[in-house]
Every structure is written in structure tokens, then in C-alpha cells.
Amino acid sequence: MMALGKRLWVEGVGTAWVVFIGCGSIVLNTGVVQQGYGVLEVSFAFGLALATASYAFGAISGAHFNPAVTIGFTVAHRFPVRDLLPYIAAQILGAIGAAALLAYVASGRPGFELTASEFAANGFGDHSPADYQLHSALVVELALSFAFVLASLMMAGRRSLRPIAPLVAGACLAIVYMVSIPVTNGSINPARSTGQALFVGDWALDQLWLFWAAPLLGGVVAGALFSLFCGKSGRHDASLADRQGEVA
């Protein structure tokens, strides 16, 4: 396993890539998603960003790029507890860096005002793209985070599929976003939500709790069920992409 410092650096860079590409597909195409178009484009942007980052960096850090994935692998005994908080911190810093870069790029558009823009932040109620309320947002984020983390764990346990695991993870994320974008603007990733919320402030920070609570709970449940039905492993694996590196 690579040194922790190198893995943290890669986790931050990979998370920044996913957030910048995914959120950039919303922010830099102003009005498209808000008018009911572009959900497929945004979903594929997030999915392809995850797949490319996983192929590029997975053998180094494990390609989590998401606190919910990290905590799911930890609960499933596939990731060391000692590295949990450092990984999450690196992911948050990467997402904040991506949001800062995106804000700088978006400021080059005439008339853009960050304070008046939703800036691809996640929300519910008046800040849901289709006005979905709290209970709908909670259920969607919880259920889809559970499914995404469980799928990642299942892929990690199947050696024959490891070479295509990043593609499957990317496809799974794209599908998840197709469903969640109309409801919450698509989170499933607390780091992604935090970076955008810090720049929007106000309502985005007030609602940020849901986009931590639901994905993390989904990851915990996925990890616990995987451990229960698939058994505990005495070996700690960083992720599905790390296992891919072993085959190669």
C-alpha cells in the first residue's frame, strides 16, 4: 500500500476532478438543467469523471473520492479505521478546491453573481430543482447512497470484474444522478455538497446536514450488510480500484 500522504493527495485531486467536471456541467451551462434539460449530460459528466479518475488514480489511493464510500468500506472491514478521517478530510479539501476553481471560471460570464446563483448546490424544498420536499430528498439520498456504496463493495469482491470496475462505478454513479438531480440536484457525496455549499452559504449551509447524514447512513448500512452477508475480511483493501491494480 502506498504511503498515506501520497494516497491523501491523490484522493483530494480525484475528488476535485469529479466535483469540477460534474458541477461544472451544471454551473457553466447556465439555465440548461434548471429548464428541465441536460439531466443526462450532467449525469454522464459525473459518471465519466469518476471512471477516468478511478482508472488514473485507483491503484494509488483506492479511488473513493466520496466520504460515504470510505465509511462504507471501513464498516465492511475493507479499509483501515486509522485512515478514515484523513481520507474524508482530503476529499473535503479537494471538493472545496474544485468549487473555488469553478467559481473563478464562472465569474468570467457577464452577469454572473455567486450570491444569486445556486452554484450546483444541493437542496430540498424551494431549492430542489423540481420542488421536492425534505422527506423525498432524505429517502432518495439515503437509498441511492446505499445502492452506490453496496455496488462498489460488490465489485471489489469479484476479482474477474476488477479490470472494468471503474467503468461500472462510473455507470452506477451516472444512473444514481439521473434519479437524484431532479430531487436534490444530486449529491450522494458529502464532500461534493460541502464544497458548493460553502460558496453559496445561507440556505445551502442550512440544508447541508441532510447531504451528510443521508449518504453516510447509506454507506454505513451498505457496509454493515456487506459484512454480514459476505463475511469479514482480515485484510484491509482501499477500494475496488486498488484491487484492480493487484490483477494488473
Rank of each mutant, 00 (worst) to 15 (best):
A68C: 00
R192A: 05
A89V: 15
Q133H: 12
R78T: 08
R109F: 15
C230V: 14
T52W: 10
V33H: 08
T184F: 00
R158W: 09
V179C: 11
S117D: 15
R162A: 13
N122K: 02
Q196V: 14
R243L: 02
G234H: 03
T15G: 08
I164P: 00
A224G: 05
A171Y: 07
V75Q: 03
T115D: 13
G5V: 12
L153C: 03
V32L: 15
A214I: 05
V69R: 00
L198Y: 06
L50A: 14
A95C: 05
I71F: 01
N185F: 09
Q133C: 07
I175T: 13
L8D: 00
V221L: 11
S152C: 14
G245T: 07
A100K: 12
F57P: 03
A165L: 00
L228C: 10
R82W: 11
M178L: 15
G231P: 02
I88P: 01
R158L: 13
S233W: 06
N66E: 05
G195S: 13
A106H: 02
T70G: 01
C230N: 13
Q244M: 15
E118N: 14
I96S: 01
L84W: 04
L153N: 01
S180F: 04
S193P: 09
A76P: 05
A238P: 09
A174K: 04
T194V: 04
R192Y: 06
K6F: 09
N185K: 11
R162M: 14
L28K: 08
V13Y: 04
E41N: 12
S239D: 09
M1Q: 12
S117W: 10
M155T: 04
G24W: 07
D242S: 15
A3H: 13
A197S: 07
S117V: 11
G62K: 05
F124M: 03
G14R: 00
A89P: 06
A213I: 14
V149C: 03
A103K: 04
S233G: 12
E141N: 01
S187N: 04
A59S: 13
P182K: 13
A53L: 00
E246R: 14
A68S: 02
V69Q: 04
V33K: 09
A197I: 02
A100V: 15
V81C: 10
L173C: 04
W203V: 01
L85T: 10
A90R: 01
K6V: 11
S54V: 02
W9I: 15
G223M: 00
L138W: 05
P190E: 03
L138R: 02
A143T: 01
F73G: 03
V139D: 07
H236N: 14
A63Y: 04
S61C: 10
A53P: 00
A45F: 06
A238S: 15
V220T: 08
A98F: 07
G125I: 09
R158E: 14
N189P: 10
S54T: 04
G157S: 15
A248K: 13
G218S: 10
Y104C: 13
V32C: 11
V221P: 00
I175H: 06
L85M: 12
S180A: 15
S128C: 05
G123S: 06
R78L: 13
